[in-house]
Design a protein around this nucleic acid. Structure first.
Length: 290
DNA sequence: TGCGTTGTTTCACC
DNA sequence: CGGTGAAACAACGC
């Protein structure tokens, strides 16, 4: 489930391996991925060079040399594979299908060939992701239209945003974290992990999270994202976590012992989302009624 | 085979 | 009118 760390990992790979390279072949086998795209025909990017790779929230923006840009939202299961002329391969995004397996495959919907022999495969088993091709000059307005809040990697700004919003809302604190207009970049995995690291029950009404807990949460959010970045993205395969050095600690670990206290990790629903937490480390602490 | 899956939008309701 | 929660939607695997 590509969230900020997974998309940023992809961005860095593109920057390292594709920027400055010229696209010589475009094969979009699932044209409907160009949902609401100002230019519906992706083949027109053939001949262009990738000039820059940037990201806001979970949206990847690839600027092309002719003044057009390709926007990508990976949604649940988008995945990008880059195979260099020597056969070495980098894959980021959703870890299914197996990144080490053969490409292209049934879920590979786009193939890009580059002038140096590099090949890019874009895959998506759920087909929920989207691509948009638009003039670079329109990108800023398009991103603004999403109404994204500040990037979740910046602790100070995150704390400011949480202080501004949480006391005025009674919805679960996890639901606040998933609202991209409050803080941009968290999805289901990192919201669960940040709440675990902060010791907050995910169902706690936002206006009942104390100031000190809010401050701890503001620290935990960038921390959780950095853990994911360090791993090149969290590895959750078929809803089962494959933790590295204790991360993820709770997401995808239903029925398994908490790494901190040994209590069995539970799965509940919060805001209609599958939510994992440790009942001991994340005890509900409601404000006393007066 | 119907349910679960997430990011995002939409909608009914109080 | 705005906060809220639920439903809808995208489509597939198990």
């Amino acid at each position: 489930m590509p969230e900020l760390p997974e998309v940023e990992t992809i961005r860095r790979l593109v920057e390292r391996h594709l920027v400055g390279r010229r696209i010589i072949g475009v094969d979009l086998r699932l044209p409907k991925l160009m949902r609401d795209s100002p230019c519906p025909d992706l083949s027109v990017i053939a001949g262009q060079t990738i000039a820059a790779a940037r990201r806001q929230a979970k949206v990847l923006v690839l600027d092309l040399s002719n003044g057009w840009s390709l926007l990508v939202h990976f949604k649940l299961s988008g995945q990008l594979a880059i195979e260099r002329p020597d056969g070495s391969r980098d894959v980021a995004g959703h870890p299914v299908p197996d990144p080490t397996g053969p490409f292209p495959h049934k879920a590979t919907h786009l193939e890009l060939r580059f002038d140096d022999g590099t090949i890019v495969w874009y895959s998506d088993i759920r087909q929920f992701s989207w691509l948009r091709l638009m003039p670079t000059g329109d990108v800023e307005a398009a991103l603004t239209a999403f109404g994204f809040g500040p990037e979740a990697l910046d602790e100070a700004v995150v704390l400011w945003a949480l202080k501004a919003v949480a006391p005025r809302r009674r919805i679960p604190i996890k639901t606040v974290l998933l609202d991209q207009t409050v803080i941009a970049g968290l999805g289901n995995i990192y919201a669960d992990e940040a709440l675990f690291a902060a010791g907050i029950h995910p169902g706690t009404p936002a206006n009942e999270v104390s100031r000190p807990r809010l401050a701890k949460l503001a620290r935990s959010i960038p921390w959780a994202l950095e853990q994911g970045l360090a791993q090149g993205g969290a590895k959750i395969v078929n809803n089962k976590a494959r933790p590295i050095d204790g991360f993820p600690a709770v997401h995808g670990r239903q029925g398994e012992p908490c790494f901190t206290c040994g209590t069995t990790v539970e799965k509940i629903r919060v805001g209609a989302r599958g939510t994992y937490f440790c009942p001991t480390c994340q005890k509900p602490r409601l404000k006393k009624h007066v």
